[in-house]
Amino acid sequence: MASTKQNRVRSMTGFGRGEASLGNNLLTVEVRTVNHRFLEISNRLPKGMLSLEHKLRGLLQDKLGRGKVNITVTWTQAEGDGAVAWDHQLAESYYRVLQEVRDKFEFREPVTLSHVLAHPNLLSSGEPHLEDAEAWKILQKVTTKAIEDLVSMRDNEGEALVRDLLPRLETIRTSLRAVEKRSPERAKEAREKLQKRVAELLDGEAEVDQDRLLIEASFQAERMDATEECTRLDSHLDQFKEVLEAGGQVGRKLNFLLQEMNREANTIGSKANDVSVAREVIQLKEEIEILREQIQNLE
């Protein structure tokens, strides 16, 4: 059963944007996310909204599970109203500090306008003066819109990844079936090969002990037998598909399953001692590695 809209497999990569006007001012929120082991949030807020950072983080944590999140909030003025304000008190204070630093270290270079203007909060354009409650009301509204856009993009990319992953599971299963089909043939060939080598060594000087030969052939067949590994790998493939179809935050579960799948593939390869089986194992491991790379971007 495919995952529902509320429980989709999501990518951790996405972008969302929201806007809202307040008089001649425009508030814009942009949210960018990339893959990350946990939920890591960094933000850039206008000076007048710094006190709302904890609420903004809470809103993001409610909507997103994993990923490195970068959110940028800006105020701009409507087209045609390009007034820019500067903080007189901050400018004077910053200038005095720069002068003190210059004198302390005996720098020859004078403090210039470019040095003062380098302060990030000196100039402001389009930021209205709002009480926290009013500021949060509009910030919450615009951020929610940006998150909705972001989640939609993450959902779409997640669906595209699932469409790529499912056929790869079948490719692995096809190689696994080839290994399973080859296993009985390998045991028979190993017994015949052993019997031929023993006969060549004795060179007709003594009769071959068939019971002893059978025991030794059984030991070889057991060392070469990868039935258990094939069964477990087949089960992991079923679980992988079930997790994808269930949806939700699947990244960590799939990563664990892939570790187990890779372990089984390595064991099958170590028991191979056969060109055709080795070729299938290489195909298995290539597809498992592609799966591993792809699921790193799933939430």
Rank of each mutant, 00 (worst) to 15 (best):
G247I: 10
V162M: 02
V111K: 08
M261P: 03
G204E: 10
K285D: 04
E192S: 09
K5I: 14
E157F: 02
R191T: 12
L123P: 03
V9Y: 00
A246Q: 10
E19V: 11
K188F: 05
V116T: 01
A83L: 15
S21T: 14
E229T: 08
S11H: 06
S125I: 10
R191W: 09
M49K: 13
M12R: 01
A272P: 00
A221H: 06
E242Q: 15
L233Q: 01
G204Y: 01
T112F: 09
V198Q: 09
E185W: 02
L194V: 03
R37A: 14
I172K: 03
I41L: 06
S152L: 11
H115F: 04
I290T: 14
R263L: 12
G126Q: 04
L22S: 12
L150N: 01
Q77K: 15
L254A: 03
W86K: 01
V73R: 10
Q6P: 04
E299Y: 00
R17S: 12
L117Y: 06
T231C: 04
R168V: 02
F107A: 10
T143V: 13
Q239P: 03
G16H: 02
K196V: 07
T174I: 11
A217M: 09
D203K: 08
G48V: 11
I290A: 12
K253D: 04
E170K: 12
R197V: 14
G16N: 02
V250M: 03
